[in-house]
């Protein structure tokens, strides 16, 4: 069973870069790491391949430069190979452009299943998974908390506000997985060393037959019109108990619609 996992390399959230005032996007000229939300998809993929007893996890990713350090982390976890679309013209790509490029790369892999995160930790659009499915004309399941393969069918538990839906998709399909549903394994030192020798197939847009004018800044149909500092956290309310503290706490929670 071959599982394609879409992964994104992002600036380290623990050491975030700055916003570019010109483009109003995150500066990405720092060392990139594997988006932690993708590590769950990688783990899920590895577990499904293990359960199938054959096949491998193939990573698919895109960057405007040829950065691979985040991919190496996923390869060190156990993914078998990677396809990296690397082209300067990709800088500034919006969600749909991203989906187009990833879908074109996925077409080159013989995927039985395509896994993504529900959204990236730096862009947060959450739209790429279903766009990929649409472009590939494949069924899509979102917010999966578990995936089980049964013959030609993926049985997915789809997280909802009230619980979960049990759905089935014929393979191949695109499934986005939520964070925290599996425990991503730690890349061991042996895995880190082995990752250096795993194949990373680097492709530019020309190799995928994509017109550079349709992606990146040139092709973006979304525009970030403004960015603003997040408001500083406001001081909380201190309730001094004068015999009615419990009522005031209940009223406070009621206002928040928690109760």
């Amino acid at each position: 069973m071959n599982v394609v996992v879409c992964v994104k390399q992002i600036p380290d959230p623990a050491d975030p870069g700055q916003m570019d005032p010109e483009t109003r996007t995150l500066k990405r000229d720092v060392k990139l790491i594997l988006d932690e939300s993708d590590s769950y998809g990688v783990e899920m993929g590895l577990q499904l391949v293990d359960a199938a007893g054959e096949g491998e996890v193939v990573l698919v990713s895109m960057v405007p430069n040829n950065e691979v350090s985040g991919l190496r982390t996923a390869l060190a976890m156990g993914a078998g190979s990677a396809v990296l679309v690397s082209d300067e013209a990709l800088a500034g790509s919006d969600a749909l452009s991203t989906a187009k490029v990833l879908a074109a790369a996925i077409r080159r892999c013989e995927a039985d299943l395509i896994i993504t995160a529900t959204e990236s930790s730096d862009g947060y659009t959450g739209t790429v998974p279903v766009q990929i499915a649409e472009l590939l004309d494949l069924p899509s399941a979102t917010f999966a908390k578990s995936i089980e393969i049964d013959g030609d069918v993926a049985k997915v538990q789809r997280q909802t506000e009230d619980g979960y839906d049990e759905i089935e998709c014929s393979l191949p399909c695109v499934v986005s997985v939520t964070a925290g549903v599996v425990e991503p394994r730690y890349p061991s030192f042996k895995g880190i060393m082995a990752a250096k020798n795993k194949p990373v197939d680097e492709l530019d847009l020309a190799a995928l037959g994509i017109d550079p004018a349709t992606v990146g800044w040139a092709g973006a149909r979304q525009e970030i019109v403004d960015i603003a500092e997040a408001p500083a956290g406001e001081a909380g309310e201190i309730i001094h108990d004068e015999g009615d503290a419990h009522e005031r706490i209940l009223a406070f929670l009621d206002d928040l619609k928690i109760l």
Binding site: R72, T73, A76, Y186, P187, S188, F189, I192, M193, K196
Partner: peptide, 13 residues
């Protein structure tokens, strides 16, 4: 660099 990557693994652990 491998040691640096491994350091990240241990730090995350």
């Amino acid at each position: 660099d491998d040691h640096d990557d491994f350091r990240r693994t241990v730090a995350s652990f």
